[in-house]
Simulated assay, not measured.
Amino acid sequence: MRLVMPAGSEEPQRDPELKRKAWLAVFLGSALFWVVVALLIWKFWG
């Protein structure tokens, strides 16, 4: 027996605060990565 998703277009409710924290974490992780890359470049070619 296969499980079938409901045919309705309703999406599960997401917490906007959690979404904001997730985007903030993505942004900070990306910023940290590029800071490390910049420091490595500066170290090797500085």
Results as ranks from 00 to 15, higher is better:
20 R>D: 05
40 L>W: 10
26 V>E: 14
39 L>Y: 02
38 A>V: 00
24 L>E: 11
4 V>I: 09
8 G>Y: 07
39 L>H: 01
41 I>T: 08
19 K>V: 15
9 S>K: 14
39 L>F: 06
44 F>T: 06
14 R>K: 11
31 A>S: 14
28 L>R: 01
41 I>C: 12
43 K>I: 01
31 A>D: 12
35 V>N: 01
39 L>A: 11
8 G>C: 15
13 Q>I: 07
17 E>I: 00
25 A>P: 03
31 A>H: 01
44 F>P: 04
46 G>F: 01
4 V>H: 07
28 L>C: 06
20 R>N: 03
29 G>C: 10
34 W>L: 15
29 G>W: 03
25 A>V: 01
12 P>I: 05
40 L>P: 00
44 F>D: 05
20 R>A: 13
35 V>K: 04
11 E>Y: 07
12 P>Q: 05
30 S>I: 10
42 W>I: 03
32 L>V: 11
26 V>S: 08
32 L>D: 03
10 E>I: 08
44 F>G: 04
42 W>Y: 13
27 F>L: 13
13 Q>T: 08
8 G>F: 04
41 I>A: 14
20 R>Q: 09
43 K>G: 05
24 L>H: 03
19 K>Q: 15
24 L>F: 06
11 E>L: 13
31 A>C: 12
40 L>N: 06
24 L>K: 07
4 V>P: 00
38 A>L: 09
18 L>D: 12
9 S>T: 13
25 A>E: 02
17 E>L: 11
11 E>P: 01
27 F>S: 13
1 M>E: 11
31 A>R: 10
7 A>K: 15
21 K>H: 12
34 W>A: 08
24 L>R: 10
18 L>M: 12
45 W>T: 14
21 K>L: 15
29 G>T: 08
6 P>D: 08
15 D>L: 01
22 A>D: 11
7 A>S: 14
43 K>R: 15
18 L>N: 10
37 V>N: 12
23 W>Y: 13
19 K>H: 09
15 D>A: 02
1 M>D: 13
16 P>F: 00
44 F>A: 06
40 L>T: 06
38 A>S: 08
23 W>G: 02
8 G>W: 09
38 A>W: 04
25 A>N: 07
31 A>E: 09
15 D>M: 04
39 L>I: 02
36 V>E: 09
3 L>S: 09
10 E>Q: 14
26 V>I: 13
20 R>L: 08
29 G>N: 07
39 L>M: 11
4 V>S: 10
42 W>M: 12
2 R>Y: 03
12 P>Y: 04
16 P>I: 00
15 D>G: 00
31 A>Q: 11
8 G>A: 08
31 A>W: 13
19 K>Y: 03
